[in-house]
Design a protein around this nucleic acid. Sequence first.
DNA 1: AGTCGCAAGGTTATAGAGTAACATATTCAT
DNA 2: ATGAATATGTTACTCTATAACCTTGCGACT
Lengths: 161, 161
Amino acid sequence: MEHTPIACSHHDHEHCIHDALEAARNLCISRGVRLTDLRLQVLELIWQNHKPLGAYTLMEMLAKANTRRVAPPTVYRALDFLLEQGLIHRINVLNAFIGCPSPGTKHQSYFLICRTCNIAIELDEPQLGQQIQRVAGDAGFTVETQALEVSGLCANCASAV
Amino acid sequence: MEHTPIACSHHDHEHCIHDALEAARNLCISRGVRLTDLRLQVLELIWQNHKPLGAYTLMEMLAKANTRRVAPPTVYRALDFLLEQGLIHRINVLNAFIGCPSPGTKHQSYFLICRTCNIAIELDEPQLGQQIQRVAGDAGFTVETQALEVSGLCANCASAV
DNA sequence: AGTCGCAAGGTTATAGAGTAACATATTCAT
DNA sequence: ATGAATATGTTACTCTATAACCTTGCGACT
């Protein structure tokens, strides 16, 4: 593998999850917001999969883990919290959610999404943001959020053809 | 208005719709695909509004125009056809569809979406595409489609605050 | 002109995604 | 301890989209 973006490389997954949850805990403490059991559980499920997860898939996972029914508002409220805190991103084209590897740092949402294996690789490209900002500015547009979703084949899947 | 992207400027709307439909007809003829009454009707409704329209809004419009019930698959099939032919784009963040001002020319989907008036301004920025292509290539990713959805305030709404 | 084949559209039912409104339970500051 | 605020539970519903199957109608070919 020549190119290995974080989400793509083979890595110590347990360690990766642990770090993400630890970072989330610290971030929430420093902000004075509550990372409750439910919210933490949702974040953990999202990280364990390492691929975009739909709200209803999460619901089923929660129901199994807690051995009781979990209704949509429960999971959506947790997701809303995690989105607000920048701990996860929403992938619009998939109606799904994925963990953010660098919460805390304010950034936009740029993703490479593999149509075969469904992996979503988050890009860290401030320059791209600047160019988008400039183009939008030329049109007199005030940018609030940016969402770039590039679909195609990841390195692994492309070489597997 | 200093900056006037196509979708934003005051223009002869009838003329604009007419041109779009004419272009669509020609494109379909040259490709040997059938722009049926239904498909044309959907395309026309989308252009008449000039703002992203949801599938169910379209359904109601069709039902009224045709004075009979129209079921979801009917409108979704027409939308699928128009998407395939590049005559419309899908705005993921709005679950809505909008006419493409330059079908025929292969291009990606870059939109500025005003959260107040809901207008969606399509950008024509091949350079942006190149930069995205480059960034994705650096990650070993093979790009198939790009979707950029920038949310914020359009020039009109920003000045109206 | 008939007819065969296929693409388009109709119909019913259901899956998937998200929210409104209200009730209950926790937590926190005082 | 108590009240206010925050978080979660519950029910019901809306909106978005697709599956599966049937019917229609165009169009190429003899």
